[in-house]
Design a protein around this nucleic acid. Structure first.
Length: 412
DNA sequence: TGTCCACTGGAAGGGAGGGCTT
DNA sequence: AAGCCCTCCCTTCCAGTGGACA
């Protein structure tokens, strides 16, 4: 082979000027169609600059409606202004999907506040109260106003209850030399219903609802990113509109639109084409669907895979709306087949709920009168993804079950 | 109107695994 | 090494339930 293998691609002119403009983490300098939300946050948080405690806030909205990016934008400016005015402001952004227990939330904040000589807090081991004490001590040591952002807070409450929020919202009674305020970000408008009324009234002193973006609004957001991220005249007619429309269909998710556009451009690039057309967008759409589901399937624990496999098996046999009991029987047989002890029906009921949350199945509760109450289960994996194939590659045991599927079928 | 089915989902707790403290 | 503490995954127990049917 002649020359370096990278040379061929390296020489090509990219359609991108700055690919980072399409990253989820990219922080744009302006936020189209979010003026009201920015203003509401600013009005409340300005108190921090005067050394007062801002109200705790809850921000609601569907994924990709700008909650996180607006919060980061406002807090960034708040930090700058605080520094300029000599007013100490500390902010903490915690993603509750990653940091999802009381202990770890305290530990994360306290670690960010650690100064030279402070004992490092292990990620498990200490009694939670001790971590809380350390946190209070460090906050008081630092002084000023501390703003804690809990992103995807609904996830935390669902997993760990509202004990943490109780502690955090009553932190100010323990602090002597500093003040603290909580900003919760939630995808679920009704999540406060799971909270103790005392906690919920303290937490949602001020609520902001982020409405989903409409297609024209998404277009504006894309336009701005295109101007910084892409070379001129790269987008063919209708491309931007199609990306916006598809994303608007998906509950107005601006992140989805950015992904679609970025992948569409990549598709055009890979084909050495000078401009992007709607065909590239369609390709990008299928790839996104595939990419969303495949990693989830691959990392599923064994019993979840077996359960999903059982549901798919039933569907391959033409059965839809399968009951929990039916699913359990198929699942047990699949377990027998590969000599694995099946879990109990109670556990399977929970696993079905988990698969439903992951969006891999659709499960809804129905009552058939004397026929009893149960779930109706259907697989929800896009047809672009062949779940069984994906699973077989990643899990030899499942492959075995899949190979024995016809025998299994005979047993049904 | 009451019964009854096939579950659901909450509560409690066991046990393994990981880590810290004394 | 023993004693704690926390998380995760799971089981066991059981009260509760929506709605067809007698």
């Amino acid at each position: 082979m002649e020359g370096n293998i990278f040379e061929k691609i390296l020489g090509h002119d990219s359609l991108f000027v700055d690919r980072r403009a399409f990253d989820h983490a990219f922080e744009p300098s302006t936020l189209p169609h979010r003026d009201h939300e920015v203003e509401a946050l600013v009005r409340n948080l300005v108190d921090a600059l005067n050394g007062h405690i801002p109200s705790n806030m809850l921000l609601y909205g569907v994924p990709g409606s700008g909650k996180t990016v607006v919060t980061r934008f406002v807090l960034g400016q708040l930090l700058d202004k605080g520094e300029e005015m000599g007013q100490r402001v500390e902010t903490y952004e915690i993603n509750c999907r990653v940091v999802d227990t009381k202990y770890r939330v305290f530990q994360t904040i306290a670690t960010q506040l650690a100064r030279r000589g402070d004992t490092p807090i292990p990620f498990t081991g200490w009694p939670t109260d001790r971590v809380l004490d350390a946190l209070i001590e460090r906050m008081d040591g630092a002084g000023g106003v501390h703003i804690i952002v809990l992103d995807e807070i609904d996830n935390l409450v669902a997993r760990a209850g509202d004990g943490l929020l109780y502690n955090l919202t009553s932190l100010n009674t323990s602090l002597r030399n500093s003040r603290c305020c909580i900003i919760g970000i939630s995808n679920d408008l009704h999540f406060t219903q799971q909270l103790d009324p005392r906690v919920s009234s303290r937490l949602s002193q001020e609520d902001i609802v982020f409405h989903p973006y409409g297609a024209p609004e998404i277009s504006d957001i894309l336009l701005e990113r295109v101007s910084t991220g892409l070379r001129e005249d790269v987008l063919g007619p209708g491309v931007l509109e199609l990306c916006s429309a598809l994303a608007a269909q998906e509950h107005g998710d601006a992140r989805r639109a950015l992904d679609l556009l970025r992948i569409s451009v990549q598709k055009a690039e890979q084909r050495s084409q000078k401009s992007v057309d709607p065909r590239h967008v369609r390709m990008a759409q299928s790839q996104l669907e595939y990419d969303q589901v495949t990693p989830v399937l691959k990392t599923l624990p064994l019993h979840q895979k077996l359960l999903l496999f059982s549901i798919r098996l039933n569907e391959e046999n033409g059965l839809r709306n399968i009951s929990t009991g039916e699913t359990y029987r198929t699942y047990s047989e699949a377990c027998m087949k590969i000599r694995v002890e099946p879990l109990t029906p109670r556990r399977i009921s929970s696993l079905l709920n988990e698969l439903d949350t992951l969006g891999l199945i659709m499960a809804r509760n129905v009552s058939k009168g004397r026929g009893g109450r149960s779930k109706q289960v259907n697989s929800a994996i896009p047809k672009a993804v062949d779940a069984i194939t994906t699973m077989s590659e990643s899990e030899p045991l499942i492959a075995e079950a899949a190979l024995g599927r016809y025998n299994l079928q005979g047993l049904l």
